[in-house]
Simulated scan of single mutants.
Amino acid sequence: MRRVGTAVFEEITIGYEDRGSGEALVLVHGHPFNRSMWRPQIEHFARAGWRVIAPDLRGYGESSVVPGTTPLETFVRDTVALLDRLGIERFVLGGLSMGGQIVMEFHRLLPDRIRAVVLADTFAAAETAEGRAARHAMADRLVREGMDGYAREVLTKMIAPHTAAHRPEVAHHVLGMMTGTPPEGAAAALRGRAERPDYTELLADIAVPVLVVVGADDEYTPVSDARVLHERVPDGTLAVIEGTAHMPNLEREGEFNTVLADFLDGLPAVPTPAAQRAS
């Protein structure tokens, strides 16, 4: 079953896709994208017996644009409100890039709701002073100039050059997501992300299984960043997807889906209500 809709909360509207049935898999997109970046995973895992929920973060896709600054905690609170509306209490939570940092913030705030974690092409460290300045400068640029120039500059960092050359449909999809993102929404997220906390020491507190995935040629979050995540979580699995950059879930969706499926298949079974009562 495919359900696409919007949920209206006190101040904003959140667009989302909710497909399939079974245990919940929640996927959080990165910047400057929208929920359609997870299309291959939504389709695959809904067929495989999962209920896959992919929201548009505020400022992106079909969700409301709120200018100013959007901290990662705000994205978490929006996601919680949506999941509560959908009646989903516990779930596997995955995110890519900024989405992965939102996942780490979610675990900092509400660890008991997470059954397992997927961290794709992301990193845990706080921003450096130079990095904060760069994010604020980019936010100002996007508001001033729009998304088009930036999107074309970074396309072959988001996806590997050979992907852009040989899979034009992927390049078109990624470029379309970036150019279609409202500049004020992207800028608000950049400002909030610049001030995020350092999650490095918190990784040891993640008491559920963790899958770390990274593109072998990712320049934004290289394999060395993924190894830090993998080494610091107590129960982690690391997968490096060859021939991909920052978006392995789109560049080699088959390999990414296989890695994620193996991880999900290995999770401890969720006790049935009868088993919980018996215990």
Rank of each mutant, 00 (worst) to 15 (best):
L119D: 01
I102T: 15
S64C: 09
L250D: 09
P161S: 02
T258C: 01
R77S: 10
T69S: 13
M98R: 06
G99M: 11
V92R: 00
E242G: 15
P55C: 08
H29F: 11
E73L: 13
T128R: 06
A126E: 15
N34F: 07
G243E: 12
L175D: 10
V103R: 01
A54H: 06
A261R: 15
L260H: 02
A129Y: 00
G254F: 03
P268G: 07
M147R: 01
M247C: 13
G15K: 00
A245H: 12
H166W: 05
H230M: 00
E130Q: 14
L229S: 07
R196F: 06
V170A: 08
H246W: 09
P222S: 10
G68D: 11
F123L: 10
A239W: 00
L142S: 08
V174Y: 11
S224F: 00
G99I: 09
P248C: 08
T74N: 03
I12Y: 05
T179A: 01
V28Q: 10
Y16F: 15
R115V: 10
R193E: 04
G243K: 01
D265M: 03
A269D: 14
D121I: 02
R152K: 14
A188E: 06
L155W: 09
E89K: 13
H166A: 09
G22T: 04
D84W: 04
T6E: 14
T237L: 04
E62W: 08
S36Q: 12
G59N: 12
V174D: 12
L267A: 06
T179E: 15
P268T: 02
G192N: 03
L229P: 06
Y60E: 11
V174L: 09
V103A: 11
T258Y: 04
W38D: 10
I14P: 11
M104P: 12
R47E: 15
Q276I: 11
M104C: 10
P67R: 09
L82T: 03
H246A: 07
S97G: 14
T272D: 08
V80C: 06
M247Y: 07
A189W: 04
I241D: 09
D112F: 04
P273K: 03
T181G: 02
A275P: 00
R227V: 14
M104S: 09
F256M: 07
L264T: 04
P271N: 06
E23H: 13
D262E: 15
L119H: 06
V270D: 09
R77G: 02
T13H: 01
T272M: 04
P273Y: 04
A207T: 10
M104K: 06
T258W: 11
P161G: 02
A245C: 07
T272S: 15
R115G: 05
G15C: 04
G236H: 05
G22E: 10
G236K: 02
T181R: 01
R193T: 03
H136K: 10
S21F: 04
E145N: 14
A194E: 05
Y60T: 01
A133I: 01
H173I: 00
P40Y: 05
D18K: 01
F123M: 12
R252G: 01
R51K: 07
L264A: 08
M98Y: 03
G61S: 12
R3F: 03
G192T: 01
A116R: 05
H136M: 05
A278V: 06
T272L: 13
R193Q: 04
V66N: 05
L267H: 09
A188P: 07
R167S: 12
Q101L: 09
D218E: 11
A204P: 03
D148Y: 05
A139I: 05
